[in-house]
Amino acid sequence: MTTGGWAARYTDERITFLEISENSTVADAISAVGIPASEAGIVVLDGKAVPKDHLLSNGDEIKIHPLIIGG
């Protein structure tokens, strides 16, 4: 899992390997690394945005982006 560095205030690592239980979702992975759900925005898997309740499979690589910000 990568965060591109924006999440430095929550987690030291830009790249994290996570062991998560079966049937874990993107939201579970976000919470497992300590990023508040309210701060995580678009999550990309295989070049495509996936919803937070997307079920992860073994070996999936996701990138968590911050929320799109603006007015």
């Binding site: 924006w6 678009i42 990138k63 799109i68 910000i69």
Partner: peptide, 17 residues
């Protein structure tokens, strides 16, 4: 986040998505 990188932080996620 508005102070840190500011709104240009949007470029990367919007591009990747």
């Amino acid at each position: 986040k508005y102070h840190d990188t500011g709104t240009p932080i949007n470029v990367e996620p919007l591009n990747e998505a």
